[in-house]
Amino acid sequence: MFRLIHSFGDLLQAVQPHFHCCADARQMAHGIIRPGGHGAKDCSGQPDLLDFGARLTREVEGEYRRALLPYGLAGHAGELTAGRLVRSRLAAVAAGEVSDRLIRRCVALELLHTSTLIHDDILDKGTVRHGVPTLWKPAGVERALLLGTIVATTGLEIAQVDCAEFARAFLETFQRVNGA
């Protein structure tokens, strides 16, 4: 598990190359700031993570729907989006502002993370995550393995569109996570 966390830490740094430290990042990562508009900041000058979380959730859910639609499982997109987005919230805090590019990088990050959870649930025979049945229960093991890989590939595609350096960091992290 330490290896997985370390690898995602590396990926988080790839998501935001100029990673800055913030004393209250933990509170901000959990969305404890005032709401506002696109790119808005709270009273401390940090990005509005409530708005960021809502935007990111919409984007991520849309990617899941597109990936799952051909398999008749698009209805499970909301369940896959049920996480807290902690890594992405930390990336937004590190960036100091929310941009469309950061949102796309965080979508890639969340897709990669979810793909590992889909595969982990199969290996551990986990049946519930975030209070809902895991994907392999309704989809079956074989389809869930395929869908986890498709979700990861979609994240890698988003990373490649962003830039080659980001895609390289993404692939290296993906290999470390899956080699654990």
Rank of each mutant, 00 (worst) to 15 (best):
A77W: 06
D48M: 00
D51N: 13
A40N: 04
E61N: 09
Q27R: 06
E63K: 00
G45V: 09
C22G: 10
A82V: 03
L56C: 05
L50N: 03
T57C: 13
P47V: 02
D42S: 01
R55I: 05
G72T: 07
A67I: 02
H76F: 03
G78I: 04
D42W: 02
L56G: 06
I32R: 13
R84L: 05
F52E: 06
G37T: 14
F52G: 00
A67Q: 11
K41A: 10
V93H: 09
Y71V: 02
L80A: 01
H18P: 14
D51H: 12
L85G: 04
L73W: 08
R89V: 10
E61G: 06
G72W: 12
D24C: 10
P70G: 02
R89D: 12
Q27I: 05
P70L: 05
R65T: 01
A23L: 09
G31C: 10
D42P: 03
E59W: 00
M28Y: 13
G39H: 07
Q46S: 14
C43W: 14
D24P: 11
Q46M: 15
A91T: 06
A29Y: 04
S88D: 00
Q27F: 11
A92G: 00
G31T: 06
H18K: 15
P47E: 06
R26M: 05
G37Q: 15
Q46I: 10
G62R: 04
G36A: 15
I33W: 13
L50S: 06
L73S: 07
G78Q: 01
V93K: 05
A40K: 02
E79K: 06
A91M: 05
A67F: 04
S88M: 06
L69H: 03
L80I: 06
Q27W: 10
Y71L: 08
G83Q: 07
H20K: 10
L80G: 05
H18A: 14
E61P: 09
A54N: 15
R55V: 02
A74F: 00
A25M: 13
R34V: 11
H76S: 00
R87D: 00
G83E: 05
E59Q: 01
A25I: 13
K41V: 11
K41P: 07
L49V: 03
I33H: 12
V93D: 10
P70W: 01
V60H: 01
C22Q: 12
R58C: 12
T81N: 12
K41D: 08
G45C: 12
A54R: 15
S44D: 15
G36Q: 14
L49S: 09
A77R: 05
G75M: 07
S44W: 14
R26I: 04
G45M: 14
A54Y: 13
A74D: 11
G62I: 01
P35F: 03
R87A: 06
H20V: 15
S88V: 03
L80M: 09
V86S: 08
R34Y: 13
F19D: 10
M28S: 11
H18I: 11
H76C: 00
F19K: 09
T57Q: 13
P70N: 00
A54H: 15
A29N: 01
V86Q: 09
I32T: 12
R89E: 14
G31V: 07
M28V: 08
M28L: 15
